[in-house]
Design a protein around this nucleic acid. Structure first.
Length: 458
RNA sequence: GGCAACGUAGCCAAGUGGUAAGGCAGUGGUCUGCAAAACCACUAUUCACCGGUUCGAAUCCGGUCGUUGCCUCCA
């Protein structure tokens, strides 16, 4: 098994990855609150952590991937009220939308997708344990966790409660013992979704679901707990507090957090209203282009989404597409020392905290090397096969079959033949007309020494 | 105000102690009926700035400036 180094937010540094149980990984990635379509920033987390999962699998780990669906929450309730529909309808609609968008982006489904609404008993049980241990108190609007009682509070985000207090913008709730105490259970108002509990009718607080669900599925300390960097505080900090207070063992060994996607230099966020949905982007761009964009920088580095960046990702995709059009697949894939050397470099990049942009740089080097040594069919065949195998986890290359119908291909043959006849009698007007009209349809003609070739654009 | 991260060519970006990957854009050339694709050549004596450690620093340390994020729902 390869030695993989992972940056652990909890440790504050990159460490060798060692799962609790050799060869087995429980990975939990915070999922969406389903009240809206996901945007390209949300997609970064989901695409990237799915990549991590697949890279671990490729390295022989048995990975069980858990991703929750938060299907009851204030924003869902608000959206339903605004639209005059049941909150369940909102949750259902955007859960489906989320799954569709993920599939379209090439993200494989989680092994476990627990829904908050289906896990309420586990949450109530966890709150009960916390109550027995004295971490819980009740106010007029809910049940709260007493952060002062958990001595490690702040160990993930490297904040102390006193520092937090000094710079706090948090609104004061007179009933809370400490401003950072957070709701485990929220009492419901008359028209809101609610469940019976020992403390009164209500719904779970946001943080408790991840603690309860991850535990009920894994039954032990998670190997990796992941999410966007904005979740470090307070969400993950609170998860740690409640889980570890109750269980008296670590919630997760490694905490991974991805950096943001900004939009033209400013934070992209649903609540700020400056987000671009994956759904809208996929109308004009193949998923590979979006993935090339998301993988273009290391995951802990801020990415800026803008027109130029998107154009550049397109250009990269074109480069790979042209490459795959230019070389035939070889039936026999010979061993190539060059390919082995490139592969080693790719693995080194990925083993060093999943450096995708470095790895993709190596792919481009291999592509260039093939063009420079065009007649070397064994090399080019080996590179193609090698790239294809990496694409099982990257999904940035053009699809293998463009799924053209037989009659389409036959028609193209006729057009190419007619054009070739025009060219041989130097009737370039006709030849160019055919090429231009096809281009309008998104079919690019290229004349090569071996005859004309065509490719479909988008 | 408190806590972090980052600052590498026109742009994106890798590189974290041994002398600057890769991509995009650009310029000139080759190929072509013209294109396209591709290839060749050129494009950072230098890594925000200042100081220090070292035989040696983009990489380590200190300071300055700048950008961004978190501190409230957020991937």
């Amino acid at each position: 098994m390869e030695k993989i180094a992972v940056y652990n937010t909890l440790a504050g540094r990159t460490e060798p990855f060692t799962p609790v149980k050799e060869g087995e990984v429980f990975m939990y990635c915070c999922g969406p609150t389903v009240y809206n379509y996901i945007h390209i920033g949300n997609a970064r987390a989901f695409v990237f952590f799915d990549f991590v999962r697949r890279y671990l699998q490729r390295n022989g780990y048995h990975v069980r991937f858990i991703q929750n669906i938060t299907d009851v929450e204030d924003k869902i309730i608000k959206k339903a009220a605004d639209e005059g529909v049941f909150w369940e309808d909102i949750a259902r609609r955007f859960t489906s939308a989320f799954q569709e968008d993920m599939a379209a982006l090439g993200v494989s489904p989680a092994d476990f997708s627990p829904k908050a609404t289906e896990s309420v008993p586990a949450m109530i049980a966890l709150i009960g344990t916390l109550e027995e241990k004295g971490y819980v108190y009740k106010t007029s609007d809910g049940v709260y966790f007493r952060v002062r009682r958990f001595k490690d509070y702040g160990k993930l985000s490297k904040k102390s409660l006193d520092d937090l207090k000094a710079g706090s913008r948090i609104s004061v709730n007179e009933e809370k013992e400490d401003p950072f105490d957070f709701a485990l259970w929220k009492f419901s108002k008359p028209d809101e979704p609610s469940w019976e509990s020992p403390w009164g009718k209500g719904r779970p607080g946001w943080h408790i679901e991840c603690s309860a669900m991850s535990r009920s599925i894994s039954g032990r300390t998670l190997d990796i707990h992941a999410g966007g960097e904005d979740l470090v505080f307070p969400h993950h900090e609170n998860e740690i507090a409640q889980s570890e207070a109750a269980l008296e063992e670590p919630l997760a060994r490694v905490w991974m957090h991805n950096a943001y996607v900004n939009l033209n230099g400013a934070k992209m966020s649903k609540s700020l209203g400056n987000d671009i949905t994956v759904r809208a982007l996929l109308k004009d761009h193949p998923p590979q282009v979006l993935r090339l964009f998301l993988f273009s920088a290391h995951y802990r580095k801020l990415l800026d989404f803008n027109a130029e960046a998107l154009e550049e990702s397109h250009a990269k995709y074109e480069r790979f597409s042209n490459y795959f059009h230019s070389f035939k697949d070889e039936k026999e894939i010979p061993d190539s020392p060059l390919v082995q050397a490139w592969d080693l470099r790719v693995r080194r990049f990925l083993n060093d905290d999943f450096n995708t942009s470095g790895a993709i740089g190596v792919f481009f080097e291999a592509v260039s090397a093939c063009y420079k040594d065009k007649e070397n069919a064994p090399l080019c065949g080996a590179v193609k096969a090698w790239l294809r195998s990496w694409d099982e986890i990257f999904f940035i290359l053009p699809n293998e079959d463009t799924a053209t119908s037989g009659s389409f291909e036959a028609l193209m043959e006729i057009l190419l033949e007619l054009r070739q006849k025009a060219r041989s009698r130097k009737d370039y007007e006709t030849a160019d007309l055919i090429r231009d009209r096809l281009q309008d349809l998104g079919i690019i003609l290229e004349d090569t020494p071996k005859g004309a070739r065509y490719k479909k654009c988008r």
